[in-house]
Amino acid sequence: MAKIKVLILRGPGTNCDVETAFGFELAGAQVDSAHINEIVRRGKALSEYQILTIPGGFTYGDDISAGKILANEVRLKLADEVQRFIAEGKLVLGICNGFQVMVKAGILPHLHDSSLHCLTLAPNDSGKFECRWVYLRVNGESPCIFTKGIRSMYLPVAHAEGKVVIQPEMRENLNVVLWYADETGDIEAGYPHNPNGSFGNIAGICDESGRVFALLPHPERHIQGIQHPRWTRDKLKGYGDGFQIFLNAVKWVEGI
């Protein structure tokens, strides 16, 4: 069968595109990477792809606020394409800066205007950029396609603006996929286990369908066992915890 096609959307300052592409390729997909201009100027069409990914980075330097300017470009210049893409039952993944872009573009927590300005990613409580590894607990109730069969993960975060802040009225119908936790799975462990002070220790969310997913930690930085910070202490594993996210996505599309 033809390979699943993944589009990685780049902007000025995107910097996790190569390792993200590697994760999808290892999972058997064919990956194209395109600059936002190329999509806006119709050089490439979203419709040719089954999975859209907005990777990590500092798009436009995170000037004004993280992901804001790329979010506006997506919201104002690609609104129809993105809506159609999601309506057609395809997958969207946002990682770190991609998460910031998706909430500020109104793609998450829900794809309609009321979704805009109901949730944001604020500066970390520590006031610092935080590059550290975190334990994640997966919400078993979540419809998320990307995390099917995963109960916990160990992944690195690297961000300055990762604190999930939600308008009170929105807290009810939010689809939480990932919580920050400690090695025992306790999600109330506090800083630095929750590296940014996120409300409810939220690290990742998805839409009702489970096909649109965004997370702050970097699964693409734990594809191989040798990326684990303690592989020299523990047994060296072939694959890292993050790989399953990419594999799940590709397998799910192959399954339909």
Binding site: N15, F129, P156, E220, T232
Partner: peptide, 19 residues
């Protein structure tokens, strides 16, 4: 910790190690 020492996904022995 305020440097991103993981980006590009190539880090095998990191600046900070241990249990």
């Amino acid at each position: 910790r305020q440097y991103d020492h993981e980006v590009q996904g190539g880090s095998v022995i990191k600046p900070l190690v241990g249990i």
